[in-house]
């Protein structure tokens, strides 16, 4: 599923040579001399932070999933997203000479650019699936179009990501159907989860002045809404779920206004790194 960690090259030589670094960044990031402009870097932060925050949430499921197959599946999705986050944050960092880890571990909350939907807690499995269903469908539409970006690095990252996100979309779709049409309890939980997450959908598709400055490079969020609605409609119809009506959260993640959840998430993620400034791991 993920190329971020390449395990295939490892031979069984249990008692021999041990010092190997098996994880490398994707080739386009190492070879390309490309340095992001400040606006492109800001846009890469938007997307990178979404992937990072969501991956961090999914990582917390591993060893706690409802069945072993889901420990593996949610782990796979999380790993793919960490891969996307690393590529995007690495690229964002080229503008200010910072590394992916400088950006992940040494920024505080107001400097994060994540959407509120990815910050929403795991909740029960239905909440995780509802969040995943919404975000994966959005990311699929986004990366499908970002492949054609005039920025070669963003286009390369998107070309790889879109294949992985396609699987994430399928995984969450299957679970939406199972939970909505499984038992009375699972249906009740699926309906609750969808209505808890829906207020955060609107923010995903909101435009920002940054997008106007990145014509041909960034994907205009509002332009994705029709495709998103068209993709989820048949799934919701088959699941006999209605689109929830009610609150629309004000959002603001792209300008550094975050939900109450993000600070806790960052505190946990950054605790060890920040206890050892300057250390390498």
């Amino acid at each position: 599923m993920t190329d971020a960690v390449n395990k295939d090259s490892i031979e069984v030589d249990a008692h021999g040579h041990v010092a190997v670094d098996v994880t490398t960044l994707d080739a386009e990031l190492i070879e390309g001399p490309s340095v992001a402009t400040p606006d492109v870097a800001e846009y890469a932060l938007w997307l990178g932070d979404d992937s990072l925050v969501l991956a961090q949430q999914l990582g917390a499921w591993i060893s706690r999933a409802p069945e072993l197959e889901e420990d593996v599946a949610l782990g796979n999705v999380g790993l793919d997203l960490i891969g996307h986050a690393r590529s995007l944050l690495h690229y964002a960092g080229t503008a200010t000479d910072r590394t992916e880890d400088d950006l992940a571990y040494w920024r505080t909350e107001p400097d994060f650019r994540s959407l509120h939907i990815v910050e929403q807690p795991n909740g029960d499995f239905a909440h995780t699936i509802a969040r995943q269903f919404i975000v994966s469908h959005y990311l699929f539409e986004l990366h499908s179009r970002l492949r054609a970006s005039a920025d070669a690095t963003l286009a390369a990252i998107a070309a790889k990501a879109v294949k992985e996100v396609d699987y994430h979309r399928d995984h969450s779709t299957q679970w939406v159907l199972r939970l909505a049409q499984g038992t009375d309890e699972s249906r009740r939980r699926m309906i609750t989860a969808l209505s808890d997450l829906w207020p955060y959908v609107e923010e995903i598709f909101r435009d920002d002045p940054l997008i106007d400055r990145l014509e041909g490079i960034a994907v205009r969020p509002s332009s994705l809404r029709p495709a998103f609605d068209a993709a989820i409609a048949p799934v919701l119809a088959e699941a006999e779920l209605e689109i929830p009506r009610g609150f629309v959260a004000s959002g603001g993640g792209r300008t550094g206004k975050h939900s109450e959840h993000l600070a806790f998430l960052l505190a946990e993620m950054q605790v060890l790194t920040r206890a050892h400034p300057g250390a390498s791991w």
Binding site: T2, A4, V5, K7, V22, T23, L52, A55, G59, I62, S63, D71, V72, G75, N76, G78, L79, I82, G83, A85, R86, L89, E100, D101, A104, Y105, E268, M269, V271, L272, T273, H276, A279, W281
Partner: peptide, 16 residues
């Protein structure tokens, strides 16, 4: 709490 994104990715892959 893994201290770098590379370590986080490796650890997730391992536990998985």
């Amino acid at each position: 709490r893994a201290p770098s994104l590379k370590r986080k990715a490796i650890l997730m892959a391992k536990v998985q």
